[in-house]
Write a protein that binds this DNA or RNA. Sequence first.
DNA 1: CCCATACATAAGGCCATTTAATGGGTCGTG
DNA 2: CACGACCCATTAAATGGCCTTATGTATGGG
Lengths: 300, 300
Amino acid sequence: MPLQLPPLTAIRVFEAAARQGSFTKAAAELGMTQAAVSYQIKLLEERVGAPLFLRKPRQVVLTEVGSRMVPMVTEAFGLLSEAYQVARAGSGGTLGISTVHTFASNWLAPRIGSFQLRHPNIAVRLDTSSYLVDFSREEMDIGIRSGSGKWPGLATHFLLRSQFSPMLSPRLAESIGGIKEPADLLKLRILNPADIWWKDWFAKANVPADALDRMPDTSLGSQAAEANAAIAGQGVTVLTTALFTAELAEGRLIQPFELTAHGGDYWLVYPEGRRNVPKIRAFREWIMAELNCPTDATVD
Amino acid sequence: MPLQLPPLTAIRVFEAAARQGSFTKAAAELGMTQAAVSYQIKLLEERVGAPLFLRKPRQVVLTEVGSRMVPMVTEAFGLLSEAYQVARAGSGGTLGISTVHTFASNWLAPRIGSFQLRHPNIAVRLDTSSYLVDFSREEMDIGIRSGSGKWPGLATHFLLRSQFSPMLSPRLAESIGGIKEPADLLKLRILNPADIWWKDWFAKANVPADALDRMPDTSLGSQAAEANAAIAGQGVTVLTTALFTAELAEGRLIQPFELTAHGGDYWLVYPEGRRNVPKIRAFREWIMAELNCPTDATVD
DNA sequence: CCCATACATAAGGCCATTTAATGGGTCGTG
DNA sequence: CACGACCCATTAAATGGCCTTATGTATGGG
């Protein structure tokens, strides 16, 4: 039996009226008319079965029944209010980020520290998965995904263009006397020959790449893993240039050609209606600044 | 600042949904449609700024934010419910009876004990005053008054017919050799010669009573006070017969003539809308039985 | 005695809430 | 694998609770 409750609007009004000792003042406090207060009190009195106020000349005073109700009602509303506030603030407690592995390890992880420094009260939970998170089923706040930038119900912000280009370790390049022209790459082991990006890139380089089809597929499932294999000199792979600036700068990988092809872009996404939730706004503004994006680059 | 509260209907629905772990079940519990529950939850989630439930295949489960809210919300509703119940029952706590002095001391007081025995959980507060209580200004539940039986906004029940007749102490009657005929009364001191009842009674007895006008008024303001004076042998007065059955039976007063005249009747009154408040019903049923009145003798 | 104040009441309208209907998704089952 | 059961979301339309405006009543102060 579901716990019998008084009419909530009425009792809310009652609480204010009891505190103020006046219907008129209560009405002012609640932003409604005195008539509405009178109506609600009367309603509650009928439900309770007893008068809650005595109507004295210039004021109303609580009856015994009324005054017995007040403390509990006040406390109850205090609790509700607190629960509400806590929930609203609490939503700023933890920021759940769902992102693809590559982006997490090659771009986000090295930089997320600066976000945490700026927002010490927001805890970050990083979750990497290969599928686009469903915000209604998983407790995530934002996602970073590559794709077309069109997802229904989600707000999207363009992060960076996924330019990719073949990369390999300098030692492997040396082992065949350096990479002079695109076709040289085919002399090496291609880590992920089935990857469509290879076809795109060779096409752009005007190099027939039928050979790719005959190579064994040894792809590892993520750019990060393949990058590691490449760094270890196991072969050559195509990688998103923006995500491996560190490896390129340190010489662990080289990008033999300026030529890049274009894949799906990276996007920041979150549920439409949550644009102004503080922690989401904070992250959005941070990442946009970090990437030098105009902050208004929103796509619907 | 008046303490920010969440939408109350929404949070009520939330509590049920959280407890049931299902929108459909919550809807059933609250007696509304599943769609309404969905709507309210969505509303609350927007206000809070964070999802409260994760929509899993066959059920909904609380998010972290949601589960933090539940305990406080549950407790708050518990308090509200308790306050409500207490108030409803608490209205059974004390029965405020406003009655005229005579009726209180001569009829009610000797009998009220039997009411209290039958309803040990109802405390009785007896207030005697000469005016008709205004239920909206004084914390009274029922009134007993004599009059026409017509009061706007009040439910009324006929209690007893106010038959009155001269009464005096047996010793006083003896002192003039007994009361043989109505005119004999005029030989004695009349305690309340200005009382209209004397005129009525003498008129009905076909005795000219001009002499009354020339007597000094020594009325004491209530039948009970005058009855005491009469018992003390200080004079003769008119009294409501039904209220002095004990004095008559014990011989402390005598009623020399069967002849009675009729004054305003006694009525039980209370605010229209409170007919079925337990304590009021209890008192009504008790007093009607005590007076052998048919319980349906209601007059509007 | 009149004005100011405070609550009660009546009539009417609006919007929040609800319902009904529909769709999408998952699970269990034959 | 198709089908039905179950559950939640969404849409549009209907309802009625709640509020406002307007007016009445009572009290107390000047």
